[in-house]
Nucleic acid binder design. Structure first.
Lengths: 338, 338
DNA sequence: CCAAAGACTGTTAGCGTTAACATAACCAAA
DNA sequence: TTTGGTTATGTTAACGCTAACAGTCTTTGG
């Protein structure tokens, strides 16, 4: 009548278990595991040994409550699927690596309400700082950021008033600069192709800056085409086809992001169009993917990695009220005539 | 001699503040904010009003400690930058959405040691479950997973022994299947182009399965080329150029992922090679990006979204010991002759 | 009118850890 | 020896919340 080989009920382990196993107080164990305060080498070894054989994993929940210190940094971004934010994340992770802080990602899918929810959820874990994309938030989110009492860094964009700190580029200026380059290259029949997303404020600002600079030169867009969802590369082809059909005399295509730009470029190359002679193309972001294309698409680097680094530095340093404007660099590639 | 307009020292708010502001006990406030237990409508309104005007954000650290319930699910993946994991994440998020659980992402950069660290870090927050990519872990990580006492789901791969549950595809089988399709299409001089990463076990298993099936047909790879780092699209071009130069009579290129495959395809098209007549191509993953290419690259869908969904379901259901094998679908595209 | 069953609110005692303050043991200098 | 300063360890009281239970009112049915 043997018992079935039941696994022991396995309470989850606490400091007490380790302290009993090693014959010292819980406090000493705590000190050893955090390497804080003086502990004799002998004791330390005994404790570490015990912790390791038991498989003890500290409970940060209790630790955080007791010390009111949390090594988490909330990072709130619109999306993971478009290459740009992963690169920002890489910058953040790399910079936080040495500080003991840990990024925690929340994704909003470009929805302000979802952003509000995600922010609330993250703040309820009392992070040491918040890095959040964009300057536009719901009033409630704005208030939460205001009152959080921790460093806040709004990233990507600096056209507006930050709650606390901001690191990014001026998308209006980026749009203007690109327009100026295009105009000075002699193009005149310019079309815009971009996202429909009502909450992609940065794409909107780029377009605004772009049109502003065009207007100053007495030029208006000859066509515009919007999309939402789907494979960006494919959409780029389709939109380009639509514009070329509808406006055959167009001589420049300005895309709101590199992915649709790449699709457009491939399509134009396929048609055998004279690029950049008869028609020019340009996009935005400077994603690595472009390097692999048969022709270098004109674009503008958005400084994504550096934005991540600088934002993380501000959080790690506990600084407040910094505004860091980075300067995107126009990469003319092979698709704007010189 | 007026004081500078200093902001009030602003302790962070607690339940007590809300309870005082609304004239009820902390417990009642807690009940209202969690909608648990019976509270009169009048009281509820008063409490909510107070919480809202004060801008109270609950402290989940304290809540979790008291209730020993944490609505977090640890998700540990190798990378965010290659399109594949974001899609898994999307599946996880979508499925967890309705459950009150929240995914928390950790990235390992394909480093086992980093995986161990990230896992330890995440377990110390006592999540309700763990979703982790792959079946290969350090002994310590394996032990932690074993003893965590929560549902564990190892995803992407099922060629091995899971700690608890597993959801994924057989990469060996995927490799075999692709090899069989290629052989039966009559290709014989087959080359492999892939990542160098020593810890990308899934790519390795695909190659093993691939070669196994080739061997069964009495065929050996005529060439192989590896890379690491850099723009995958560009690497695809470069590697393809290298193989075509070194082994001019090659008639099939098998890529370990879609991105380098796409680069290779663009390069071959640029050369004007007869695809799929003279030379065939195939890759792996079925990423959306391929839809936008001028020619449909043969690939195999890795069921990424569904893997995410199924894994999340297992966690949400608190189930244990499930193994779910999904079947990747071979998409022949236009780059294997029929 | 009373008992029993809700409906609503409050009280108490932790959850597992750490800050802050003892305490104890030891050693060097006076 | 005494003093004072380290070094090494322990004790106590939070941290902010929730589970579990204990009331206090109502309401309902007989």
């Amino acid at each position: 009548m043997t018992q079935p080989p039941k696994t022991p009920p396995k309470r989850t382990l606490t400091l007490r278990d380790v302290s009993e196993a090693s014959g010292v107080s819980e406090m000493t164990v705590s000190r050893v595991l955090r390497s804080r305060g003086d502990v004799s080498a002998a004791t330390r070894d005994r404790v570490l040994e015990a912790a390791r054989t038991l498989g003890y994993v500290p409970n940060k929940i209790a630790g955080a409550l007791a010390s009111s210190r949390v090594n988490l940094v909330a990072v709130i971004i619109p999306s993971l699927s478009n290459m740009v934010f992963p690169e920002v994340m890489a910058g953040i992770s790399a910079t936080l690596e040495t500080t003991g802080l840990q990024p925690v990602v929340g994704v909003t899918n470009y929805s302000p309400d979802r952003e509000e929810t995600v922010l609330y959820e993250m703040l309820s874990w009392r992070p040491s700082g918040v890095i959040i994309a964009g300057l536009e938030h719901t009033p409630a989110a704005q208030a939460m950021l205001q009152n959080a009492g921790i460093p806040i860094v709004e990233i990507m964009d600096i056209d507006g008033v930050p709650v606390d700190s901001a690191v990014g580029i001026s998308h209006r200026r980026a749009g203007r600069q690109m327009a100026e380059a295009i105009i000075s290259a002699g193009y005149r029949k310019i079309a815009f192709l971009g996202t429909m997303m009502p909450h992609d404020h940065r794409a909107r600002k780029r377009l605004e800056g772009f049109e502003e600079a065009l207007a100053k030169a007495g030029i208006a867009l000859v066509d515009r085409e919007f999309y939402s969802g789907g494979s960006a590369l494919l959409k780029g082809r389709e939109m380009t086809a639509a514009v070329l059909t509808r406006t055959p005399d167009v001589d420049f295509l300005y895309y709101s992001n590199d992915m649709i730009g790449a699709g457009g470029l491939l399509y134009c190359l396929h048609l055998g169009l004279d690029i950049p002679g008869k028609i020019g193309l340009a996009a935005f972001n400077g994603v690595e993917l472009l390097d692999g294309l048969p022709r270098q698409l004109a674009t503008m680097d958005a400084c994504r990695h550096e934005i991540g680094c600088r934002a993380a530095e501000i959080i790690a340093g506990g600084k407040e009220g910094n505004v860091v404007e980075l300067s995107p660099i126009l990469q003319r590639g092979d698709t704007i005539r010189t």
